[in-house]
Amino acid sequence: MAFVIGIFFSIGTYLILTKSLLRIILGTSIIGHGALLLLLTMGGLKQGGAPLLGAEAAPYADPLPQALILTAIVINFGTTAFFLVLAYRAYQEFKSDDMKKLRGPEHE
């Protein structure tokens, strides 16, 4: 898992550092997934039943990281959606998704 998370973070960082806005957004969402996986791993990967009343397993897995991840996914979803809309607006306005062209005049 640690390797997977590492790969996610490095890809995400690479994408964020590129010029294209769309890639930056993809990068943030990949880093986001890396962070969520890290949360899951750090909560401890154990063998155990799903923490549900219906599943009758003797040892249950720790439900807390899962609850946290669900919340974090919802938040990620919201921010990514907003970021996409923002990027789309910026694309309409500037006719480009190149970060260098978005920078504009230094002193306005």
Partner: peptide, 18 residues
């Protein structure tokens, strides 16, 4: 509500935010 607002506003090509 939120999901559809986002999708509709992107796809409508007018792009008014949320």
């Amino acid at each position: 509500g939120t999901t559809m607002t986002v999708i509709v506003s992107i796809s409508r090509n007018k792009g008014d935010e949320e």
